[in-house]
Structures are given as structure tokens and as C-alpha cells.
């Protein structure tokens, strides 16, 4: 475990240096929160029908989405990307560590530092000025935190799949452009999942992406009762295991071709 923790710590420390990036990120998130809240308020304004989520819940959902944006696996980790692109992945094979674990630790750090840097300052803003509600109860709050950890692990497994695909395509942009729309739609970052059309709800509940932000957020606001938290966590855990297994076996094949081609 030690080498992975060391990679994690070193990367986190590096990312903390980028202060301006953090400030800019917060400003960015506030902007998007304000715009999205305005759009949804305008949609709710003339609608008489009862929706599966209230306007105030939707607004809380939007701000949570801004604060915890880093949970969404929409990019690759830059160091791993460069290692694969430049071909120095061969050197990483020489190290006495598990390649999948190494990449996983790196991407976990790349997600964790921005998550903390954004969420911590954005929460007070959103709570005080922009109409975000606090967690409905202590139980909901702890369920939400647990599900957030689950989301981090799940997201890193998804990103690692993209990393592994780079062994075959080299350039990650093609794969990313195909995965991003799927992740955006089915995670709830485009529209809160409960507001999606009824006929698609079954698929939405089955796919892994709801575990990234939608179910943690709904635990936070009590839209999913804290007593049902175990369902969310189990859903995340099963999908994480499945994706890690797929990633590992694909990595094994990728390394194999790499060796055959002589790096």
C-alpha cells in the first residue's frame, strides 16, 4: 500500500500549489450555479404540475453539483496520459508496483485535491447566498459523505478504463468524446436524474453513473431516505468492482501488445 499512498500524497501536494486555479474554479462554479439555477427557476415558474423534485430541491442539487464537480470522471490524469503518449509507460513497467494501482492512486489524487479545494469554499457561499439547503439530518449527512467516497472510487475506476484504452488508441480525446456525453447524461450533471423523462428512469437507475453524483446528492437532501443508503453504497460497490475487473484484464492485454510491439 505504501507506494500508492506516496504517489497519492505527492500528487495532492502538487495540486495544492495551484492557488489561482482553485480561485478560478470557484468563480467558475458560482457562475454556472447561478446560470443553471436561473434556467431551472424559469422552467418551474409557469409549471402547475407537481414534479418529482421541488424547485428548492433542484437548486440544492445544482449547487451540490457545482461544489462536487470534481467527482465527475470527465478527463484523464495528465501524468498518466503523458506517460502513455510519450511511450515512457515502458519505464513504469520496470517499477515494482502494480500499474493499475499506480494509475488509480494518481487519478484519485487528481480528483481528491480539487474536490476539497472547491467543495470547502463553495459550500458556505452556496448555503449563505444562493439558496442551497443544508443536509436534512445528521443521518443523511453521513450517508452522503459515505456515498461521496463511494463515488470517488467509482469515478477513478471509470477514468482508469479510459487510461487503459489509451494503450490501444494513444490519443484519449476520441474515447473521451464518446464517454463524456454518456457520463454527463446519466450522472445527472446535465439534468437532475429525477427530472429526466419517466420512460428512461429504469435504465438510469441501472447504469453506474447515477452513483457518481445523483444518488449522493439525493441522500444529502433526503430525496433518498438515509435508511436506504445501503442500496446506493451497494450499487456503487458492485459497479466499482466490475469496472476494476474489466480495467485490469484490459490492461493485461494492453501491456501484452505493448511487449510484443517492443514498446
Amino acid at each position: 500500500m505504501r507506494p500508492y499512498l506516496a504517489v497519492f500524497e505527492a500528487r495532492t501536494r502538487m495540486l495544492l500549489q495551484y492557488r489561482a486555479a482553485a480561485l478560478a474554479g470557484i468563480a467558475t462554479q458560482i457562475y454556472w450555479g447561478v446560470v443553471l439555477a436561473a434556467i431551472f427557476t424559469a422552467f418551474f415558474a409557469r409549471s402547475a404540475a407537481v414534479q418529482p423534485m421541488s424547485l428548492s430541491q433542484t437548486i440544492t442539487y445544482i449547487w451540490l453539483g457545482q461544489a462536487m464537480l470534481a467527482l465527475i470522471p470527465w478527463n484523464v490524469e495528465s501524468e498518466t496520459r503523458d506517460v502513455i503518449r510519450t511511450g515512457s509507460v515502458a519505464y513504469e513497467l520496470l517499477r515494482p508496483v502494480d500499474l493499475y494501482g499506480l494509475w488509480y492512486a494518481r487519478v484519485a489524487a487528481a480528483r481528491f485535491a480539487p474536490l476539497v479545494l472547491r467543495a470547502v469554499p463553495l459550500f458556505p457561499f452556496a448555503l449563505l447566498f444562493f439558496g442551497m439547503a443544508p443536509p436534512v439530518s445528521g443521518a443523511s449527512a453521513s450517508a452522503w459523505l459515505a456515498a461521496t467516497l463511494g463515488s470517488l472510487l467509482l469515478g477513478c475506476a471509470i477514468t482508469n478504463l479510459v487510461h487503459v484504452s489509451m494503450l490501444f488508441t494513444v490519443d484519449p480525446n476520441g474515447v473521451l468524446r464518446l464517454t463524456i456525453p454518456v457520463v454527463m447524461i446519466f450522472s445527472g450533471s446535465l439534468i437532475p436524474l429525477p427530472l429526466m423523462p419517466e420512460w428512461i428512469q429504469g435504465l438510469v437507475a441501472f447504469l453506474p453513473f447515477g452513483g457518481l453524483i445523483d444518488s449522493p446528492f439525493r441522500l444529502y437532501m433526503g430525496h433518498i431516505p438515509a435508511s436506504d443508503a445501503w442500496i446506493v453504497l451497494l450499487h456503487q460497490a458492485v459497479w466499482t468492482c466490475v469496472l476494476v475487473c474489466i480495467g485490469r484484464s484490459a490492461l493485461k492485454r494492453g501491456v501484452h501488445t505493448l511487449v510484443i510491439h517492443g514498446g
Binding site: R177, L178, I180
Partner: peptide
């Protein structure tokens, strides 16, 4: 070119 076609399709999709 392979990546190019995927990206074009991806952009349209996104």
C-alpha cells in the same frame, strides 16, 4: 484519422 473520426462523432454527440 481513427481518433479524428471518433472525435467528430463525439462532438456531434456531445
Amino acid at each position: 484519422p481513427a481518433s479524428f473520426v471518433m472525435q467528430l462523432a463525439g462532438t456531434a454527440l456531445l
